[in-house]
């Protein structure tokens, strides 16, 4: 589904990603861990199409297409979803009209007719129940006045609404209490299918107690320096990142 080959990128002339290689297949969950400043969020930003990151070399294929040629909204319509680390507020824009615009754009791309109001509200209700999000949140303006946890739950709700092929969750667990964490993780687990894939970026192992990854990668200094099964996350939790850094510096 997603193939990243020797991806290098910089921000304001400073190299951040120094040659990323990664292959994600449908049905898989990949976790990316790593210390602060290793390039985790930059990788997410590149995949979603943020323009402040400059690609210096490499390629990214998504469903066989060259992802880096596409505008952010085209990537989204093709099925890339980014769960933001810091979701923004859009005052005065109701969740209903925001989601309805988004859902219908994506349906248009998939050659489906737009949903009318009553069908849309029904669809929204189903998804709300699925991810156990409070009805009051969807009656408000996009993220306006939401707590940190509410914003993250709202990201998962939007993911459920948009049914992406590849969901990238950028530190969705940061700042969540254990109950909110469980809701977020349950949402992901319910939405998981053989047709979609997840790239879960996290700083801590605890999210991976709930979302079981197939592969765990360690990103350090702009490169993936280690990839292994889910037990790697536990090892990192126990030993920290220093041994990775030492091992990497030896090379």
């Amino acid at each position: 589904m997603l193939t990243i080959k020797n991806l290098k990128a910089q921000i304001n002339g400073k190299p951040i990603l120094k040659g990323i290689n990664l292959e994600i297949k449908a049905g898989e969950v990949h976790a990316i861990m790593g210390p602060n400043g290793s390039g985790k969020s930059t990788l997410a930003a590149v995949l979603a199409g943020r323009d402040y990151v400059e690609i210096t070399s490499g390629e990214v294929l998504f469903m066989g297409q060259n992802l880096l040629d596409l505008a952010p909204e085209e990537r989204a319509r093709m099925g890339i979803f980014l769960g933001f680390q810091y979701p923004v507020e859009i005052p005065g824009v109701s969740m209903v009209s925001f989601m309805r615009t988004a859902v219908n754009e994506i349906r248009k791309y998939r050659n489906l007719p737009p949903l009318n109001s009553s069908d849309f509200l029904k669809y929204m209700r189903e998804k709300k129940e699925l991810v156990e999000i409070d009805t009051q949140l969807t009656h408000r303006s996009v993220n306006e006045g939401f707590s940190g946890g509410e914003k993250k739950k709202n990201e998962i709700f939007q993911m459920a609404m948009l049914e992406p092929k590849l969901a990238i969750l950028d530190e969705t667990d940061s700042g969540l209490d254990i109950d909110a964490l469980r809701i977020v993780a349950n949402g992901v687990n319910k939405l998981k299918s053989p047709d979609n894939a997840y790239l879960v970026i996290t700083h801590y192992q605890r999210l991976l107690d709930y979302i079981i990854p197939d592969v765990v990668h360690v990103l350090y200094d702009g490169r993936i320096v280690k990839s292994a099964g889910k037990e790697l996350a536990l090892e990192l939790e126990e030993k920290g990142y220093d041994w990775i850094k030492r091992e990497y510096q030896k090379i």
Partner: peptide, 29 residues
């Protein structure tokens, strides 16, 4: 905000429509 526009883009909404949404939200009252 560029961030607001990008947030909309990432949900499949074009920049033009995003500006419309954001401005209409701002003028809602």
């Amino acid at each position: 905000g560029e961030d607001q526009i990008f947030y909309c883009n990432q949900r499949g909404i074009s920049t033009e429509d995003a500006v419309g949404l954001i401005v209409n939200g701002y003028a809602r009252e």
